[in-house]
Design a protein around this nucleic acid. Structure first.
Lengths: 342, 342
DNA sequence: CGTTCTCTTGGTATCGCTACCACCGTATAA
DNA sequence: TTATACGGTGGTAGCGATACCAAGAGAACG
């Protein structure tokens, strides 16, 4: 089974009928003994098991899937694999799936909707039995494909207005609003907002909306020059903070809505000797381990990424095991973690 | 294609013969037009393409794989998905595979050899066309399975004495030795060593050996009480450093051979007001972004994780595309990155 | 004792696609 | 012209498993 191999290359594969012959039973009995042992008599099962062990037989799941029109592979598309936020979700998904005998096929879209489309097509061509998409805005063709094939789909990363199927997420809008309001309650009045790129990213956009909504509720002016776009990473966070403080010397807090931006800013403050939160307060999004251990510890939003993964996989597995298709929408919520930096 | 669905549930799937009929050609022509367009005349290709688009046809790769005895899915087993080191390797693998039309099935073994065995079996049952294992010590059954099925395998994470097939890695022994020697050259004389768990982990073991080898070369005493095992994570690194300093007040450097241990230790120093490197120097393993931005910046070993992933995937793809099977052993090396912390 | 039911087992026809071979027409060589 | 080659197309027989149905052996029942 290699990329170029012709038919019958090298040692012939051991197949079920071989096992059947050696065990002196029919291949149906072998098939049953392996998949539903309880439907086969003790004697048969023993004969089959013995032959299976003797030959080190590995059933061919490709053939099984084709025949049964059932697969045990779930497809997952994330914007980037190289990001610990997704990593903890992926880990949880992987664990739940594995416990139920499913496997995970992973791909990353790089935040590009056209790539998402190509990947959804490819995964559906592989006949995955379910999809998890960390994204809630899709191409038309993606929506069509999902509708036509009828595969169960979990969307996550945001709470969409028109879900494809099932959703497990938190509200980026509410989370950003809550943190901004929190900073306001703590007495900060000039709050900068640093966001990840907004293009093709509903999550970023929602966070920005939440920030402005909170400002309004706080009776603070909505100053667009307090909002900066950064591409994610330590340096970008540092740069953004420096730029904000240069243009707004009165800035008393920075809310970094993405990745490790906040930590980059914090390190920059250490480098420049700016007291945190004395000179400027720093708040982050997503409770990375790092934030709990930095000096000072960093106020942040705890998004239950692991739980999102776990519940997504559980919903999918239930559906695959026969639960009736119903639109489920789970809001896992979030939590503000107040620490030393604010 | 769902977990429980019976045959012929709902709308019948569109298949190649349907496309063939509507395009007025044979299904072989459709098959060829999709896989090797150059072997089909312009006219046929257009007819086929039109029908494919009209029906939104998605070829069934499961059937294709069964028939051709070829698959386009590569299996990957890492100790943990939730670890940015693996993440950057996975990202690279995923990118290279995708560019060549392959997909990635991921599983994590949690550092347990028995789980690795179960996963290798499962992936081979899915008839993956290649395997990447981040581990170089395996169960007997794993070695047997690999030998019997003949799938191309890449091992990584260490340079094994008896590789299964191809290897792309660096030497944990040499890396740890080089860093320890480096610290010695800088004048440090009492160098603590904090390692990840040694059990079932040849990488950790090799690193420890490298540490002792360097001490010997430096003419420093090999004191086992300078070696501490920690399970990985910020707090564990912090704890380890504190314990080392308590038992060895003269400790002048700590080499943290794993994960974020060094950063945890660094934060602890900040908390306690210990100057780094004045009171104690800190060196790490693996060039996390974090280390370049921390204050002070942290001396470390740059392991080209991304390159490891890329080259692993490239080797695999070449082999799958027909390269002759030869034992390849690539040592990607490492690099000492001297920074402020030592 | 015959009938009905349950529990096991086996035979067979697919699942959707591709490898292989046969074929046909046209182009090139002899 | 006849022979040979070659690009392009279609028919057919699997790939290795499972779903479905049929059938035999006992058990339970009247």
């Amino acid at each position: 089974m290699s990329g170029k191999a012709k038919r019958n290359d090298g040692g012939a594969e051991i197949k079920m009928s071989d096992i059947a012959r050696h065990a002196g039973v029919s291949s149906m009995t072998v098939s049953r003994a392996l998949r539903e042992p309880s439907t086969v008599s003790e004697k048969m099962r023993r004969k089959v098991d013995a032959a299976v062990r003797e030959f080190g037989y590995l059933p061919n799941r490709i053939a099984g899937s084709l025949s049964s029109k059932r697969s045990n592979v779930v497809g997952l598309i994330v914007p980037s694999i190289q990001n610990s936020l997704y990593a903890s979700m992926i880990q949880a998904i992987s664990d739940v799936l594995r416990a139920n005998g499913f496997h995970l096929m992973i791909a990353n879209s790089g935040h590009r909707l056209d790539d998402e489309e190509a990947l959804v097509s490819a995964l559906l061509a592989q006949r995955v039995c379910g999809l998890v998409l960390h994204n809630t805005t899709h191409n038309k063709r993606v929506r069509d494909l999902v509708a036509k094939t009828g595969v169960p789909v979990i969307e996550t990363g945001n709470l969409p207005a028109e879900p494809l199927d099932m959703v497990v997420s938190y509200s980026n809008f509410e989370a950003a609003r809550a943190m901004t309001a929190h900073l306001g309650r703590l007495g900060y009045r000039k709050i900068g907002f640093v966001t990840l790129p907004l293009r093709d990213n509903d999550r970023s956009e929602e966070r920005r909306r939440g920030y402005f909504a909170a400002l309004k509720e706080l009776g603070l002016p909505a100053d667009p020059s307090l909002v900066l776009e950064a591409s994610g990473g330590f340096s970008e966070g540092a740069d953004a903070l420096v730029r904000l403080i240069q243009t707004h010397p009165g800035l008393d807090a920075g809310f970094f809505a993405g990745d490790v931006l906040a930590v980059g800013a914090l390190f920059e403050c250490q480098r420049r000797g700016w007291a945190v939160p004395g000179r400027v307060a720093i708040a982050s999004f997503d409770d990375l381990d790092l934030l709990r251990h930095a000096v000072p510890t960093v106020t942040t939003l705890r998004i239950p990424r692991h739980e999102i993964g776990r519940r997504s996989a559980e919903l999918l597995v239930n559906r695959l095991l026969g639960a009736s298709p119903e639109r489920v929408r789970i809001d896992v919520g979030f939590e503000i973690v107040q620490r030393e930096s604010t």
